[in-house]
Simulated scan of single mutants.
Amino acid sequence: MKPATVAQIKKELTFRSPDEITQLCLRLARFKKENKELLTYLLFEAESEEAFIQGVKDEVDELFNTINTNSFFYIKKSVRKILRLIKKYNRYSPHKATEVELLLYFCHKLKAFKPSIRRNRTLQNLYERQLDFIQKRIPVLHEDLQHDYSLEVEELKLP
């Protein structure tokens, strides 16, 4: 089955009643966890972006606290999992500042993590890639945010 384009779906939805649209959304939410998470964001968290960011930060804190530090293999695996989670949440929010703020928070946590990421080249590369990614995102933000985030990125750079 070939999926319809977004334009076709949008056109079809204009002909449906609000009750039918509600039923379609509920049915869509049953099939995939990400669909349910996106609907949760849109319905409950989109109005308060700060609360959404704080919720994600709390979840990241919890995940960093549960990392198995017995070997760098487990650390790398867990750090990649946390980064995937952050990137998934960034897709839900239309605000670019949210993306930059969450990635900066991730970098702060990773830099402060013990054992130090400087002892593992893979983790250092991952950290540096995220800083480069953040620097590419900063120019599209408001001027005040650009300045604040640029200072924060400079502070995070490894010597």
Rank of each mutant, 00 (worst) to 15 (best):
K76P: 01
N68V: 07
L103H: 08
A112H: 06
L141I: 03
H142E: 14
D144L: 12
H142S: 04
E143N: 00
A97D: 15
E37F: 02
T40I: 04
I86E: 07
Y149Q: 06
Y105L: 11
I53F: 03
I117L: 12
S17Q: 11
E59P: 00
H108I: 10
D144S: 14
F113S: 07
D61L: 08
Y105W: 10
E12V: 08
L26N: 13
S78H: 06
H95F: 08
E143Q: 06
E34F: 01
F72G: 02
P159Q: 09
P115Q: 06
F133W: 05
Q23C: 03
Y127K: 02
K33F: 07
A4Y: 08
Q54L: 10
C25Q: 09
L85P: 00
K32G: 12
R30W: 04
K2L: 12
E37V: 02
L126M: 09
E45C: 02
K96A: 14
N65Y: 11
S150V: 02
I82F: 00
K77W: 10
V153N: 00
T66W: 05
V140H: 08
V56W: 01
F72K: 07
R30L: 11
P139G: 08
L13K: 05
E59K: 09
R118W: 00
L141T: 07
F113K: 15
D144P: 00
S17P: 04
T5Q: 09
F72D: 01
R27I: 09
A46T: 04
A29P: 01
P3M: 13
L42M: 15
I134H: 01
L104R: 12
E154Q: 10
A112G: 05
L110F: 01
K77H: 07
K81P: 00
N70W: 01
K114M: 11
D58G: 14
K81Y: 12
C107P: 05
D148W: 06
S17Y: 04
K36Q: 01
G55S: 11
I75E: 02
H95R: 12
T98G: 12
E154T: 10
A46K: 11
